[in-house]
Amino acid sequence: MSRPPTFVPPPCARARTLRTARGDFAVLDAAPADGTAPRGTALLLPGYTGSKEDFIAMLEPLAAAGWRTVAVDGRGQYETPGPPDQQAYEQDELARDVLAQAEALGAGRVHLLGHSLGGQIARAAVLLDPEPFLTLTLMSSGPARVAPEQQEKIRLLSGALTVMTMDGVWQAMRALDPPEDAEETGAAREDLRHRWLLHNPAQLLATGRRLSTEPDRVDELAALCPPPAVHVISGVRDDTWPVSLLDAMAVRLGARRTLVEGAEHSPNTDRPEETAAAVAHFWETWDTGNTGEAGDTATTTAESGAAGQNRD
């Protein structure tokens, strides 16, 4: 679970409803504060048990760099309601939601970024129709199912969701927290609890099952013609997908690869400014006025608020 530093949007962002052909979605819509036209628009998809607030600390630095960013709660996530039927959360359904969201933004082709589960949904959307997207950024999102330890955690959570209330599951999860998480302030803990209670259990069950069974679709993505410009970004440690696996995926895709120093599975909350700088640098390469060059496989590190340094 990503733990955003706050659930209060920065001044550059407004919470609103994005109305699409497939329903309404809660979003945080951030743009340059001085009212200038943005350089482009990006759609940000959160991970399993997460929400649009997982990107909240990235919104201001991205707006300062000139970008409009729209972070979304997918169906059944936090402030976007969803039905009780698990079939409504099959990956193709969620991918079609993303296509509808991109169209509803009214910004032409957009940059697409997904964290963890959101990255696999983003990949599925691009495989359905790559045309709406300028680039695809996979943030801490691997090529196939999650690591065995994470599969076991999802199995236990799914079992609990079938016999306990959402509040009961929350209390059980908190009892297993490491000591450092138990030191969170009351307000931060209550925000996380409130988010959890609004998640739809059917969404958690369906997407958790998908995370545990996701096939390797990297070759499908690489085979698109023309192939999308892809950025693989992660922390230097990750217990959901081994970093070496993310490295290999980037090579298979001919993707840009960024490692964020000091970050683990959630660079968006662990090191948001460094992560935002790396993401903005990639988008600049593929701006609407600059087609860039495909096959940029160089690995860079993002540290001390700057991105793009050679790793070696």
Rank of each mutant, 00 (worst) to 15 (best):
T137Y: 00
L113G: 04
F55R: 06
E214A: 15
Q171G: 02
L204R: 06
P201S: 07
E90H: 13
E184N: 14
N268H: 14
A202N: 03
P130A: 09
L44Y: 09
P32Q: 02
R237F: 10
D85S: 08
I56C: 12
Q309V: 13
L45C: 02
A223G: 07
R195S: 13
E303L: 12
P61Q: 03
H115T: 07
G106T: 03
A104R: 01
A187K: 10
Y48V: 02
F25L: 08
Q86I: 13
A175H: 08
A107D: 09
W283N: 00
V251Q: 13
L245M: 14
T6D: 04
A160C: 07
P84I: 00
P5I: 04
R189Q: 12
A147D: 12
W67D: 00
T185P: 09
Q120V: 15
E184I: 12
D239V: 10
L161N: 08
P46G: 06
R14Y: 01
A294P: 15
H194N: 15
F7V: 09
W286N: 09
E220I: 00
R3A: 12
A37M: 07
D181F: 13
A88Y: 05
E60C: 00
M1F: 11
S51H: 07
T49G: 03
P5A: 15
T135Y: 01
L59W: 05
A125P: 01
Q309S: 13
L192G: 13
D181K: 14
G82Q: 01
S234E: 09
H231W: 07
D97A: 08
Q120H: 08
D181T: 11
R189S: 15
A306K: 14
L18W: 08
T185N: 10
A263C: 04
P4G: 04
G186W: 10
M164C: 11
R210E: 14
A223H: 09
D216S: 08
T291S: 15
T240S: 12
R145S: 15
A306C: 12
L117I: 01
T240G: 03
L224G: 09
E103S: 11
